[in-house]
Simulated scan of single mutants.
Amino acid sequence: MVRELKEVQGIIIKRQKYKEADLLAKVFTKNDGIITMIVRGALRPKSRLGAATMIFSYGTYVINTSGHGLSMLRTYKEVKQFDNLYQDMTKNAYASFIFDLIDHAFIEYQSLGKYFDLGEFAVRKINEGVDPEMITQIVQMQLLEAYGVKPELEKCVICGKTKGIFDYSIKLGGIICSDHFYQENNRLHLKPKETAILRTIGLLPIERLGNISISEDSKKATRDAIDRIYRQTVDLNLKTKKFLDELKLF
């Protein structure tokens, strides 16, 4: 198996003890996907590699890799950190859940493409102080496609109508207009404004995101709706989500 030295740019999204003083660290990259690196001696006092692979560090990592399995971290360049994510438990919890959600949608070394941009932009916004719950809801809605569950949000899944009053049907995989509410007893029974929020956050390119101002009631309704969509279509059981629930954030 041929191994090579390679530079990858990315964000450290997870780390765990490996052997004695060593760590396994996952780095989130755009072109090379999610890579697990062995970090030798990372747990030793004053280890530079350990400091460079703290959670939510980002920069350039030089790895010895074969393109599968575990890679070896050799050195690093220009590593910085999302300090607010690291220091704030709430922001940390949301960012950890976002990365966990993306991590479970892809196999290692699979190119993330637009989902790298989605994840990076999301954690930058959370680090800057933008409402982490709404950023997380945006990621959840836009990541459904990566799980093979792309909801129809532009038009009624039954008749194609694009304007009017809409609700969401998990069974039918998208929005339905009020002309067909009587046909779908299992729709989510969202208020028109709440369905509009789901449509917006599912379709809006995240780089066009402006100021977010949504009432707590609407936010809770969309949160519950997204949770139901995931439970019934993706069925994940993530520890990071449980932690958010325990914090009463979700």
Rank of each mutant, 00 (worst) to 15 (best):
F106L: 07
F82T: 09
V79T: 02
R74S: 00
K91Q: 12
K77L: 10
D100Y: 11
A105H: 06
F99G: 07
A93Q: 03
A105W: 07
L101N: 01
F106H: 09
D83M: 07
F82M: 06
F106R: 10
F97G: 01
Y76E: 12
I102K: 14
D103C: 07
T90L: 05
F82H: 10
A105G: 03
M89V: 05
D100H: 09
N84T: 07
H104V: 04
V79L: 13
F82W: 14
L101I: 04
L85N: 11
V79E: 02
T90S: 08
F82A: 06
M89Y: 13
Y94I: 07
N92S: 03
Y86K: 02
Q87L: 10
L85K: 14
Y76L: 11
D88N: 04
A95T: 08
F82D: 05
I98E: 11
F97W: 12
F106V: 06
N92K: 14
Y76T: 08
S96A: 05
A95M: 03
N92A: 00
L101F: 03
I102D: 07
A93C: 04
D88S: 08
N84V: 02
F82K: 12
S96Y: 01
D83E: 15
A95F: 07
F97D: 00
F82R: 06
L85S: 10
V79W: 04
Q87R: 15
D88I: 01
Q87M: 14
D83R: 12
M89W: 05
Q87S: 11
I98D: 13
I102G: 06
L101S: 03
T75E: 15
L85M: 14
N92M: 08
S96W: 00
T75M: 13
M72A: 04
Q81V: 13
Y86P: 01
